[in-house]
Nucleic acid binder design. Structure first.
Lengths: 187, 187
DNA sequence: GTGTCAATTCCGACCGGTCGGTATGCCAGT
DNA sequence: ACTGGCATACCGACCGGTCGGAATTGACAC
C-alpha cells in the first residue's frame, strides 16, 4: 500500500517537474510518509524510475502478445496494436511522459534491462509489417523502421497534446492513426 | 567566440546527461572558461536552454517560410517540409534531443515565447494539410492534427535512433517518410 | 609610436541552501 | 524476544549564483 502510493506520487511528480528536479523529500511528503519509509522499500531513487518504466513496459508487452496471439490478418493486428498503444498511453500518460523524457537517467544495467523489453516490442511490430510487405499485403513505400517510428512517435508525443477531456477520445485518435497508416500501406 | 563555445558545450552536456543533471561547472570546465565568463554572457542557467531552443526554432521556421513561399502544390510542399525537418534534426540532433526532453524546464515567460514559435510551425503544416483535404487533393482518413503529429513524432524521436554513419542518410529517411505519408493522403 | 583611461571580458573564492542517502531507534504484531 | 515497518535527525557533497577586482582591449590624444 505504502509502496504503491510512493510510486504513484513519484510518477506524478516526475511527469510534472522532471526526475532530477523532483526531490525524494517531495515524493515522500506527497505520499504522506517519510524518507525512512521510501528507503525501506527502495534502495535508491533510481529504482522508482525503473519500477515506473518496468511496469509500463510489462503491461504493454502483455497486451502486444495477446494481440499477436489472436493471429488476425496484418491490417487488423496493426490496428489493434495502435489502439492498445493509445489506450495504455492515455491511461498512463504521466508514466509515458516520464518514460520518453527521462529515458537515459538510469544506470547502464537497469537501462539495458528496459531496452531489451522495448526492443522486443519494436521488433514484433516491425516483423509484422515486414512480413506483410514481403507477402505483398502491405505496400513498401517506406521501411518497417520508419513506419514503426511514425506509430511510436505519435504515442510518445501524445502526453504533450492529448487531453482526456478533449473532443476526441483516445480510441478515436487511434483509429484515425490506424486508418491513415493502413491507407499508406495499401498496395 | 566564448559565448558560442559555452553554448555548444551546453548542448552536448544537456543532450548527454540532461539539463538538471548538468552543472554550470561542468559546462564551463568543458568550454575551458570559468563561471564568471558564463554569467557574464548569460543571466541564468535557463538562458542556455532558451538560446538552444530559440536558435533551433528560428532556423526551422526560416526554412519553413522559404518552402511555403515557393508556393508549390501541397504534396511537393509537404515533402519539402519533411525533408527540411529531417535535415535540421540530423544536423542538430543533440539540440533536438534536448528540445524534446527538457521542454518544460523553462519558466513560464520564456516557455510561452518558444511555444508561440512552435505553434506557428504546427499551424502552418496543419493548414497546408487541411486546405488540401478540403480541396480534395488529400484524402482525409485522419485529421491534420494526427497526421502532423506522426510527422513531428518521427522527427523528435530521430535523435534516439538516427545514426549519421548508418546505412541511411537523413534525406533518404525523409523521402521514405514522405512517400509513406503521401500514400496515406492519396485520394 | 606611445601613453592614457575607460569599458569589456573574465577570474575564482565564496555563500546559502538543497540534495540523496544513512544511522538509529520506536513500536505494533506475533 | 524478535521482526517488519516505519519516523527522526543528521551528514557530506554539491549546486546555482554573486561579487570584487584583475586582465585585456580599443579609442583617442599627442
Amino acid at each position: 500500500m505504502v509502496r504503491e502510493r510512493i510510486l504513484a506520487c513519484a510518477v506524478e511528480l516526475f511527469a510534472a517537474n522532471g526526475y532530477d528536479a523532483t526531490s525524494v523529500q517531495q515524493v515522500v511528503t506527497r505520499a504522506g510518509v517519510t524518507k525512512g519509509a521510501l528507503y525501506h522499500y527502495f534502495a535508491a531513487k533510481e529504482d522508482l524510475l525503473f519500477e515506473i518504466y518496468h511496469s509500463l513496459l510489462t503491461d504493454q508487452l502483455a497486451r502486444l502478445d495477446a494481440i499477436v496471439a489472436r493471429g488476425a490478418d496484418p491490417a487488423t493486428t496493426l490496428r489493434e496494436i495502435i489502439r492498445s498503444l493509445a489506450e495504455t498511453t492515455s491511461e498512463n500518460s504521466r508514466a509515458v511522459a516520464v518514460f520518453s523524457r527521462e529515458a537515459s537517467r538510469l544506470d547502464e544495467e537497469r537501462w539495458q534491462t528496459l531496452r531489451a523489453e522495448w526492443r522486443r516490442y519494436q521488433d514484433t511490430v516491425r516483423g509484422i509489417i515486414r512480413d506483410a510487405q514481403e507477402a505483398g499485403v502491405f505496400a513498401a513505400y517506406a521501411s518497417p523502421e520508419v513506419i514503426s517510428w511514425a506509430i511510436f512517435g505519435v504515442n510518445t508525443s501524445m502526453p504533450t497534446w492529448f487531453r482526456p477531456d478533449g473532443p476526441k477520445k483516445a480510441v478515436e485518435i487511434a483509429d484515425e492513426l490506424a486508418d491513415f497508416v493502413l491507407a499508406g500501406l495499401r498496395p
